[in-house]
Amino acid sequence: MILFVLCFVLFMIGLYGVILQRNLIKIIIGLAIMEYSVYLFLILIGYVKGGTVPIISDFFENGPFVDPLPQALVLTAIVIGLATKALLLSVAIRLYKHYGTFDIRKMNNLKG
């Protein structure tokens, strides 16, 4: 149970970074931390006590396996995460070229 709680604490730290930081790169880092905590949470749910790696082999005993379904889902999610992170970084350096800073308080072109 303590593992789920620590995972949730990691998620809340990422949320704190997204809400309270004012540097664009720090906000992206907060989003990355939230992503990582969600991956770890999914894999923790799929763990089976006494299980082994989900690969059928002739040389080892094919005992109870850990759940392969969350692993397959997280495998695709990690690669998509890198692509979306690159998209966010490209938006950030576009804004840096326009405003000359990463501080979101100074990006006030659309302020009413």
Binding site: V79, L82, A83, A86, I93, K97
Partner: peptide, 20 residues
């Protein structure tokens, strides 16, 4: 597919930085 995507993202970022 994944190799081409990742390399393309990196090349695009490097080209943008050089031109800037």
């Amino acid at each position: 597919e994944v190799c081409a995507s990742m390399t393309l993202i990196f090349v695009a970022l490097i080209i943008f930085k050089d031109e800037e």
